[in-house]
Design a protein around this nucleic acid. Structure first.
Lengths: 255, 255
DNA sequence: GTCATATGCG
DNA sequence: CGCATATGAC
């Protein structure tokens, strides 16, 4: 089984990219973030005509998440119970192939002294509560998406420049460790304990060509899944396509 | 000799169209309107590298006119002497192959009761003065471009709907006749006295596909040129290209 | 830098 | 409708 995550930064613009990637990579499950389109603007038919199942939580301009899968999704859930009035569409969960899949577009936060950073803190607290609860009911669970956190200095092209900056601060890394502490494993580091595996590169300054990025897209998995984890890769090729997203797809393969 | 006019509605967007059209049609002179780019943003090298001469009068966002020719332009002039303080770049004239070529992007006017219509009136008066003066010095002269006037009901897809509307009003048609009265001939009507030869179709409502347009782009010529006029055509093909201008090129051929 | 939005213009 | 501008987000 192959499970993937990709922040596509506007599905309106990137629908052809997603279709090409699905056809080529044939994942069992693809989690998308930053659809940037309203619930009723989602191109479900484009996927369904090719035999895919899909569920989504859309929002105009910002956020928006979707799951695309070969098998039908069950027990679909959106949002975080701890933030019932949050209008931002950042979470969609479903059970597919017996695996609980929680797809998240985590808050960016802008800067440590921004009001948006306080929202990021509250949001991660609510996510942690939600995952803790989900884990009581699902042995096989993958929490995946754009976390907007580079967990360690090895996940950042210039740790000194990014020291205590957004995405790389010790407080955000603490939130990430809290999630792992629930009983999750960073799948990429299980397979590749060391090395640079960036998943995002700023559009500005030809950062991708210069190989200067951050690893902020993750697949965190429960022990029942670590046992069968075979491989995890970042698809750098897709980031090199015409008019690319600023993120690359990341996939994990299980027996 | 082949002389053409084309409102290209942004040269930034339409540079490939212009290059393709030049290569295919090999005009001696091409007059462009609505460059929509600043004087120092004009892609002169793109034309010069293919052996063309070019002169232009550019303006950010709006207006802008250019001449592209096989032979070098001489006595280049921009603007209207009667409107010395007008910042709008709507006129460029040059002598090429012994022909005085006056390329105009005439004022649109918006509506008969708009302040812009008064500007259109003043502008046509200044154009008339300018052409009267030019005619004293040039036996072979072509006044060409986007006139934003459909001279007669035959030049409008729905004369009743457009009756006394902008582009089709009797007052604007009077200004057009005043220009002809200086000693100019509407070259298209010399060759094709009747029939619909639209040169502009609104982007909205698939007007081109429905063949609902106006004839507002013209080549007006002096008697020394009417004598050798062989053919005049509207290039409908170019309007059907991908991402087209809302205007089609119009060309006249002389012996 | 590449998205989105909104407004002005034709 | 398709271009341009300007602003906001990331």
């Amino acid at each position: 089984m192959k499970i993937a995550t990709w922040n596509i930064n506007s599905l309106n613009v990137r629908l052809p990219h997603v279709q090409d990637w699905l056809a080529k990579e044939q994942p069992d499950i693809l989690a998308l973030q930053e659809l940037k389109l309203d619930q009723d603007k989602y191109p479900a038919a484009a996927f369904q005509l090719s035999g895919w199942h899909t569920v989504w939580s859309g929002q105009k301009t910002y956020n928006g998440v979707a799951l695309i899968s070969k098998q039908p999704p069950e027990e679909v859930h959106t949002g975080l119970p701890g933030l019932p009035d949050d209008p931002q569409r950042r979470v969609i969960a479903a059970t597919i192939n017996g695996v609980r899949v929680v797809n998240v577009y985590c808050v960016n936060g802008e800067a440590l002294d921004s009001p948006k950073f306080d929202y990021k803190r509250q949001w991660f607290a609510a996510l942690t509560d939600f995952i803790r609860d989900e884990l009581t009911r699902h042995e096989k669970l993958v929490l995946l998406g754009d976390f907007n956190i580079a967990p360690a200095d090895a996940d950042c092209y210039d740790p000194e420049k990014w020291r205590e900056q957004i995405h790389c601060s010790s407080i955000e890394r603490g939130w990430f460790q809290t999630l792992l502490g629930l009983g999750l494993t960073d799948s990429l580091r299980q397979i590749h304990p060391e090395g640079a595996f960036y998943t995002w590169w700023d559009y500005r300054g030809a950062m991708f060509q210069r190989k200067l990025g951050l690893r902020i897209d993750h697949l965190l998995i429960t022990p029942a899944l670590t046992e069968t984890l075979q491989d995890v890769q970042v698809d750098l090729e897709a980031r090199g396509w015409e008019r690319p997203s600023d993120h690359a797809p990341v996939w994990a393969k299980f027996d």
